[in-house]
């Protein structure tokens, strides 16, 4: 569908927020199985930036915030030519958008406490999850853990706090406490809360970790979640051509059931959110 840019502003050096509008853009497209239902956190859109054949392919961006049924917001990092072109679009400009696509973050029944862990641009899809939990799930509490290189790259912390989500930060250079990796903060949090309730593993039952960010962070979060017996759902990236499950180009290796063999799963269609336990990193 053709969408119109409403706002496209630099948030911090190289990171942008763009609002686009089109009728029904926040809903599943007519003809799709979930037609008319709202886009869910963890889903993404494929954006055609520019009219020419170079760049050729659409760029995947995660739903950052569903503003209304007819408008959505993306948070993106200018990383190459496509996102640079996107950053130059101004209000009123049009662009072709496909979506929402993919599966979204699962919230299995019984989940009472969500640990939201983001590094850098990884905050993009997690904000949508935080919006959903704070607006529509009074039965779930959340805590957010946001890491970045330095103060400017800890994205969205104030927004999470505004939602009354307890929010922890970490920067590699110490420009915002605490200095170090966000995974250390997460580890302390989990251990402290396990101790507080003084009844071992059972305190983390009903918890789930939702992660998105650099691969090294995702791997260490996944290992930690496994260690404490907490479910971890993570949003994955991969180069995409079609975004709708047709080209088989976006696969990653995941475990197939309990037998230890691996299969290729499509990030666009089977994902982008996977059970971290299944991913072969």
């Amino acid at each position: 569908m053709i969408a119109r840019i409403r706002k496209n502003e630099e948030l911090t050096s190289g990171y942008f927020l763009v609002d686009i509008e089109a009728e029904g853009i926040g809903l599943h497209e007519a003809g799709r199985p979930a037609a008319g239902r709202p886009a869910v956190p963890g889903q993404f859109y494929m954006l055609k930036v520019g009219q020419s054949t170079d760049p050729l392919l659409r760029r995947p961006l995660s739903l950052h915030r569903k503003l209304t049924d007819d408008s959505v917001r993306f948070l993106y990092r200018q990383s190459g030519r496509g996102t640079a072109l996107l950053s130059r679009l101004i209000p009123g400009d049009e662009l072709d958008v496909l979506g929402p696509l993919g599966n979204g973050f699962p919230i299995p029944t019984g989940i009472k406490h969500a640990l939201i862990v983001g590094g850098g641009i990884g905050v993009a899809p997690l904000m949508a999850l935080a919006d959903y939990i704070s607006d529509e799930r009074q039965d779930i509490t959340a805590a957010a853990f946001i890491g970045g290189r330095s103060r400017e790259y800890v994205l969205g912390a104030d927004e999470f706090r505004r939602k009354r989500i307890e929010t922890f930060t970490a920067t590699e250079d110490g420009s915002l406490p605490r200095k170090g990796l966000i995974t250390h903060v997460l580890d302390d949090y989990i251990r402290e809360h396990m101790r507080k309730d003084a009844c071992g593993r059972s305190t983390v039952c009903g918890w789930a970790v939702y992660s998105c960010g650099p691969k090294a962070m995702l791997i260490s979060v996944a290992a930690m979640a496994k260690k404490y017996g907490i479910k971890n759902y993570t949003s994955m990236e991969s180069n995409m051509a079609c975004g709708i499950g047709a080209c088989m180009g976006c696969v990653i290796s995941v475990l197939d059931g309990g037998n230890g063999s691996s299969v290729y799963k499509k990030v666009c269609d089977d994902g982008p959110v996977f059970d971290a336990d299944d991913i072969i990193w």
Partner: peptide, 9 residues
């Protein structure tokens, strides 16, 4: 099929 990454622009 082949291992990823399988495509690039």
């Amino acid at each position: 099929g082949n291992p990823p990454p399988r495509l690039c622009e």
